[in-house]
C-alpha cells in the first residue's frame, strides 16, 4: 500500500464509516484468510500509530482512528465465524460495522447451527448418523450424512463428517 498524503488520510478518516471492512482492507469478498492477514500487515505498515508519530496531532488522530478500524476489520474477517456473521449483516444491509462481541456470539450460534444442522431434517439425519457412528456402523452413518446433506448441501461440517465416515467405513 502506498504512502498517503495528509489530505488523503483526512479524507479516508472522514468517510471511514461508509467503508465496509473489505473495502477498508482492499479485499475482495472472497478473500482467503491468508489474503486477510497480508492485507492487515500491509495496511498496518501505513496506519500503525508507531509509523505516524511524527505527524501533527490532527493527522495523528485521523490515522489513529483508521488504525483502530483496521484492527476491528481484521479481528472480524480473520475468524470464519465472525466473518460469517458480518457477511450476513452486510448481505441484509445491516451496516458496515459489527460489534466484536456480537460478531462472536452470532458467529458461535452460526457455528453451532452448522455443527448440528440448520434445518430440522438436516438435524434429524445428522443425529441418526451420530447414533450409527456410536454403534460403529460407519457405512450407515455415511448414508445418513448423505441424506442430511440433501437438505443442507452447503454444510461444510456435514461434508467433512461424511468424508470421515466413508474413510472409516472402508
Amino acid at each position: 500500500m502506498p504512502e498517503m498524503a495528509p489530505t488523503e488520510i483526512k479524507a479516508l478518516a472522514r468517510i471511514i464509516d461508509e467503508l465496509d471492512y473489505y473495502q477498508l482492507l482492499h479485499l475482495k469478498p472472497n478473500a482467503s484468510p491468508r489474503d486477510v492477514k497480508l492485507a492487515f500487515h500491509s495496511t498496518s505498515r501505513v496506519f500503525h500509530p508507531d509509523a505516524n508519530r511524527h505527524l501533527d496531532s490532527d493527522l495523528r488522530s485521523a490515522v489513529g482512528d483508521i488504525a483502530k478500524r483496521v484492527t476491528e476489520a481484521y479481528q472480524v474477517l480473520r475468524d470464519a465465524r465472525r466473518r460469517g456473521a458480518y457477511d450476513d449483516q452486510l448481505g441484509s444491509g445491516g451496516g458496515s460495522r459489527i460489534r466484536l462481541a456480537e460478531a462472536l456470539t452470532a458467529g458461535s450460534r452460526q457455528d453451532t447451527e452448522t455443527r448440528q444442522g440448520r434445518t430440522p431434517q438436516g438435524r434429524q439425519y445428522f443425529n441418526l448418523a451420530n447414533l450409527d457412528a456410536k454403534r460403529g456402523d460407519w457405512a450407515a452413518a455415511a448414508r445418513q450424512l448423505q441424506t442430511a446433506l440433501t437438505f443442507e448441501p452447503d454444510n461444510e461440517f456435514f461434508k467433512s463428517e461424511l468424508k470421515a465416515a466413508r474413510e472409516k467405513a472402508r
Partner: peptide
C-alpha cells in the same frame, strides 16, 4: 460483567456501546 472486547484482540481497538 459483559464482554466488550475479547482477549487477544489486536490493539489499538475501539468499541462503542
Amino acid at each position: 460483567a459483559e464482554k466488550v472486547i475479547e482477549r487477544n484482540t489486536p490493539v489499538p481497538i475501539e468499541q462503542t456501546r
